[in-house]
Design a binder for these strands. Structure first.
Length: 249
DNA sequence: ATGTCGGAATTGTTCCGA
């Protein structure tokens, strides 16, 4: 079974890249983030055999799960947080969450506190509804670089979000509950970045960040994991690359 | 590093968010 996560930065704008990518990569389950629409283009992926669970209300945020191995028990609520940033479903043998964690914007910005509160609510809801002995994955854009090596130059991030101890502790709380950080094979150099800013030739210089994750319980046997850098290249690319994971379920 | 995107309203340019 092949699963993947991809922040597409608008599913409408990304359809000319998403559809061929689905055909070539052939994932069974895909978690998408930043769909940026209220109406997911269901018909365009239904032809490839995918059912869709989508939570989106307009120009910002929006998350989806595409599955061709079944889609049941869809939920999209996170207590106290109305923005569409979480959708979960049972996809065949695997329970799947697609997450788009708030960016945080800047230290001292109310959005940073909102980010930490959102993480806390996620941990609480996860623990209240699931147990770590079930096959379950959290996939998505966590907007946190868990280790200093997950950004191209840690010194650039002094005083910035994504690398602070509270943000990293929020991710470790998820891991401590019973999830493994499925680190992808490096695609270039020795680091598996998943995001490169559109500006300043960051992709070309490989100045990226690892902020998109697949977190899996121990009962999800991982066979392989890679970052699809090709999807980040060329005309009409998202600023994030997909993470693709093969599991033996 | 701040060189680009994407969406929408204040439209054929400006703004916000990332």
């Amino acid at each position: 079974m092949r699963i993947a996560t991809w922040n597409v930065n608008s599913v409408g704008a990304r359809l000319p890249r998403l559809v061929p990518w689905l055909e070539e990569t052939s994932p069974d389950v895909v978690a998408l983030q930043e769909t940026k629409t209220a109406t997911f283009p269901v018909a365009e992926v239904a032809g490839l055999g995918y059912e869709v669970a989508h939570s989106g209300d307009g120009r910002w945020n929006g998350v989806a799960i595409l599955s061709r191995v079944g889609l049941a028990d869809v939920e999209n609520e996170l207590a106290g947080h109305p923005e569409p940033r979480l959708v979960s479903a049972q996809c065949g043998p695997l329970h799947v969450h697609s997450l788009y964690v708030p960016n945080g914007r800047a230290l001292g910005d109310p959005h940073y506190d909102y980010k930490l509160a959102w993480f806390a609510s996620l941990s609480e809801q996860l623990a209240s509804r699931h147990t770590p002995d079930q096959p379950l994955v959290l996939m998505g854009d966590l907007n946190v670089a868990l280790h200093d090596e997950d950004v191209w130059d840690r010194s650039v991030f002094d005083g910035s979000t994504h690398v602070t101890e509270p943000e990293r502790a929020a991710v470790r709380r998820l891991l401590d509950w019973g999830l493994v950080d499925v680190e992808a094979r490096p695609g270039k150099g020795d680091r598996a970045f998943t995001y490169w800013d559109y500006r300043a030739g960051m992709m070309h210089k490989n100045l990226g960040m690892r902020i998109d994750y697949v977190l899996a319980t121990a009962s999800v046997p991982v066979v392989d994991a890679y970052v699809d850098r090709e999807a980040r290249k060329g005309k009409g690319a998202s600023d994030h690359a997909p993470v693709v994971v093969d599991v033996d379920l």
